[in-house]
Design a protein around this nucleic acid. Sequence first.
DNA 1: AGATAATGACCGATATAGCGGTCATATGAT
DNA 2: ATCATATGACCGCTATATCGGTCATTATCT
Lengths: 111, 111
Amino acid sequence: MKEHTRSYARVTREALTMMGGLIRLGRKQRKMSETDLAARVGIARSTLQLIEKGHPKVEIGLVFEAAILVGVPLFVDEPSRLAPEISRIDDKLALLPRSVRRARSEVKDDF
Amino acid sequence: MKEHTRSYARVTREALTMMGGLIRLGRKQRKMSETDLAARVGIARSTLQLIEKGHPKVEIGLVFEAAILVGVPLFVDEPSRLAPEISRIDDKLALLPRSVRRARSEVKDDF
DNA sequence: AGATAATGACCGATATAGCGGTCATATGAT
DNA sequence: ATCATATGACCGCTATATCGGTCATTATCT
């Protein structure tokens, strides 16, 4: 038993709550029951319940799948815009040094 | 061994890749090493590597924490806008029937 | 009102994610 | 050129998330 309990930042908890709420909303708007959606995603209903509650310890892949199935947009409005956006990020990354050197703590946390 | 391998929708994989890329980009822009960020988030470096690669099977809470620490916005630009947004969702949910009835598959997947 | 289904909550078993470590290589600073 | 360290890849162990079920309650339809 290393870390029995973990703490999450407020923003994280809120973002998770929002994600869960959006999925729940999307599901209901499409008149799907929990059982329906869970079956579609390929997960247990109990897991979907955790997702809609915004539980932090669920696989992000499952959450995203559920989100997509009920029409919650991820990052972009059009799914087709994901690829170009990824390219943009890769381009930016290519311009940066491959290895980060130095800068041992100065994000100001240690003041 | 029930489901050894799981498949994810293309959009899911791309969204995960984008999320990972954004975190990696944010980290480098802030000149943090993998070890630095992992320590800050409170996770192993190996886990952070999976996150930046967009691996689907990581806790969503850990991904969000990492994202926030390097300045990747989640849903909204300002973290302070999360709460109001959650309220809006709750309001919408309150207007919908508590239980979803019927409508067994018609999201068109079964064409 | 009655029937039927959805939801909320809970639980044991088991597959597995995260940890923490190692090693090789690449990279950036001096 | 040298050296310190960042990165990439891998691995066994252990804590634990997911599954798949049950049960009680609530909500919706006829």
